[in-house]
Simulated assay, not measured.
Amino acid sequence: MTKQVATILDVPFTTRGFRETVDHITERIQGGQKTHVVTANPEIVMVARENRAFRSIVEQAYVVPDGIGIVYAAKWTNQPIYERVTGVELLEALMAKADQHQWGVYLLGAKPDVIHLAKDKLSARYPNARIVGCRDGYFRPEEETQIVQEIAEAKPQLLFVALGAPRQDEWMAKYRDQLNASLMMGVGGSFDVISGKVKRAPEIWQKLHLEWFYRLASEPSRWKRQLAIPRFVLTVLKEKWSSRS
């Protein structure tokens, strides 16, 4: 039997493929198990490596491999991760489950126009899913108590939070015991994609595993963030070579 966790630079990833991940998370929701999903790419792994408090959050979460760099790192270190589980696709698949089971969904984060567009698109695509709340990410610290209370009273099965990483996961971990959500998941820029404000890379780029390069070409201002990718590769290889010696 394949082990269910693979460790990449001290971050524990689930080894389940996409469909298996969706089914397993659905089982957890139906079984009353609370789940904090972290969609981790090389950038998140490097943040966890350098930020002890964030690493502690990640170590307790359900971490999925969102990024081809994670799949390659697993291959180089002989670990059984064979498939990406991207945040935006996992969000859509869980919305399909919400549609099927009439789950409550709360959407938090992104810009005001983006979150409302995303809500409208998701409501149209998944009419039986109950969107029980929606709030943009431009709130002041003193408004957090009210937002947490609103989510807690709504008791959503799915809470999707787009506040950027690592802030979104730190926020969910801070209020985890109060939020009353079966599943909490940081979704980064997924609402931008769902709303149509940002285009995903064409399918050919996705198949060639060059989605990161397409995003960099589309948004050159991302170059500093993308430096995490070569740093991640070098760190994985360095650890591999040092473990051999």
Rank of each mutant, 00 (worst) to 15 (best):
A154Q: 02
K111N: 11
A173H: 06
K207H: 11
F213G: 05
L179T: 13
E211I: 03
K155V: 12
F139N: 01
P112G: 00
I131R: 02
E150L: 00
A154L: 02
M184G: 01
I229S: 04
L183F: 03
V161D: 06
R125C: 09
N180C: 12
V148N: 08
L210W: 01
P127K: 07
L179Q: 13
S182H: 05
A201P: 07
Q157M: 13
R140L: 13
G186W: 04
F139K: 01
L107I: 04
S242L: 09
D192N: 00
Q206H: 10
L183M: 13
V105M: 05
G164H: 08
L216W: 14
V198G: 07
V148T: 14
Y175T: 03
R135D: 08
Q146G: 07
V187Y: 03
G188R: 09
W212R: 03
R140A: 10
L159S: 02
Q157V: 11
L237P: 10
E239T: 12
V148D: 11
M172A: 14
R231G: 14
A118S: 10
N128C: 08
E219F: 01
F213T: 11
V161L: 09
S123F: 03
R225T: 05
G104V: 01
Y214F: 15
L227S: 06
M172Q: 14
D120K: 15
A228N: 08
R125W: 10
S218Q: 14
R140P: 02
K224Q: 14
S218Y: 06
A124D: 07
A152G: 13
L159P: 05
